Computed example of a mutant assay.
Amino acid sequence: METTRVRFQDPRIELAHGAGGKASRRLIEGLLVPYLANEALAELGDAAYVEIPGTQGLRLALTGDSFVVKPLRFPGGSIGALSVHGTVNDLAVAGARPLALVATWIVEAGLPTDVLEQEVEAMAEAARNAGVDVVGGDTKVVEHGKADGLYITTAGIGVVDPRVTLSAASVRPGDQILLSGPIGDHGITVLLARGELDLEADLVSDTRPLWPLVAAMIETAGPGIRWMRDPTRGGVATALNELARQARVAVMLDEEAIPVRPAVRGACEILGLDPLHIANEGQFVAVVAPEHAEAALEALQGMPGGEDAARIGEIGSDPAGVVLARSSFGGTRVVDMLVGDPLPRIC
C-alpha cells in the first residue's frame, strides 16, 4: 500500500497518547492512518462497516478494543465485564446488533489463579447478559511485573440494522443531541477505587450493554438517527468535539440539562475536573433529526436504565468545529478536548 508522509512528530509515546484526547488524535491521524488509510477508516468511528457481497446490502460492523483498567475490580464491575460491555457498545452505537466476540488475555506471571477465574466468570456472565457468545481467543503469559496482573483485548462483530445510516456527514444544524443517562459514574468510581485519594462516594460504575436502549430508539426513530457514540475515554466532551470537527458544525450544550449525579459533581469540583471529560462505560450520546427527537427520547426514557435520558443540546452552524456549553445564567464557555486524560487506565 502506498503511504503518505507521517506527520506525527512526538519523539516518544506517552500515557497521553492513549487517553482519547488531542494527543491520541495526533497519534491516530498523524501516524496510524497515513499508513493504513482506506475507505473504511475514513470515518474513524467506534466500529467499521463491511458490506457482504451478494447479500442485498447486508452490512456487518467490526470493532476491536483493549482493556487495561486499574484496579481489576471496582464497584459495579471489573475488567472481565468491562471488556465485554466496551466491545458490544462500540457495535451498538454503530447501529449494529452484537453477535459474537473473540478475546485475548495477556496474563502476568504470578497472578493468582482465582483472580483470573473471577474475571473469566465475569466475562462469561456479561456476555450472556449482552446476548453474545465469546467464540474464540488467545492467551499469553508475560513476565512478572509486565502487565499489572491482566490485560484483555477483544474484537466484536455485529449486524447493522438497515433502518439506520450513521455518519458525521449526515449531521445538520437543528439536529438535537440526546444523552442516555448520567455521566461520569465510571471514571470517578474507578478513580476512588484506587484508594489514592481521601474521598468517599456512594457510586458504582455504569458499565452495562447499550444495545437494548439503542434498539428501542431505532425501533421508534431509526431513520432520524444521524450519529451515535459511547463517550468512554475523554468523555462527552471528546466525543462531541470529534463530531464538531468531522461534520464542521457547532455543538451547543445546555449545561443544566446534562444529567450528573451529585457525588460525581462533588468529586469533580474537589479535584478540579469537568464531568464532561470523565469516562463513561454505559452511556451514549446521539444526534437525532428534530422531527424524531421527542419520539427517540421517549423510547429511551421508557427503557429500564434509560429513565434519566435527556435532551442536552442542539447542532448549530457557527462557530464550526466548536463545542459550547450554555449555563443557567446565560453565559457560554468553550468545551475543548483535553490533550491527555486526568484519569489514566480507566478502561
Rank of each mutant, 00 (worst) to 15 (best):
Q283W: 01
G136Y: 09
L27Q: 02
E2N: 08
A147E: 07
A94H: 06
A293S: 13
D254Q: 11
Q301A: 11
N89E: 03
M303R: 14
A147P: 03
P231A: 05
E51F: 13
A309G: 05
V88I: 08
M228Y: 11
E121S: 15
Y49N: 06
D206H: 06
R172Q: 15
A37D: 12
S78I: 10
E219W: 08
G222L: 04
H277K: 10
S317Y: 13
V132I: 11
K70M: 13
G340L: 06
G272V: 05
S167N: 10
A126M: 12
M228N: 08
S83A: 15
G313N: 02
G313K: 01
V335G: 00
M217Y: 13
M252G: 08
V134F: 10
E14K: 09
A92C: 09
D10V: 04
R248H: 13
G95D: 04
V115I: 15
L243W: 05
V132Q: 03
T113G: 12
M337V: 03
D90Q: 15
I346Y: 02
G266Q: 14
T113C: 06
L91K: 05
L273C: 05
V285I: 13
A247W: 02
E108V: 01
F284E: 00
G302P: 09
L150S: 05
D161K: 07
D65A: 15
L338I: 00
L150V: 11
V322R: 11
D206P: 11
I52K: 10
F329H: 05
A237C: 02
D148N: 12
R128F: 15
P71M: 05
A325E: 03
E291M: 12
V260S: 01
G330A: 04
A48N: 13
L300W: 08
P34S: 00
G136D: 00
I258N: 04
G235Q: 05
S167P: 03
S78Y: 07
D308T: 08
F8W: 11
A169L: 15
R26P: 00
L82H: 09
G77K: 04
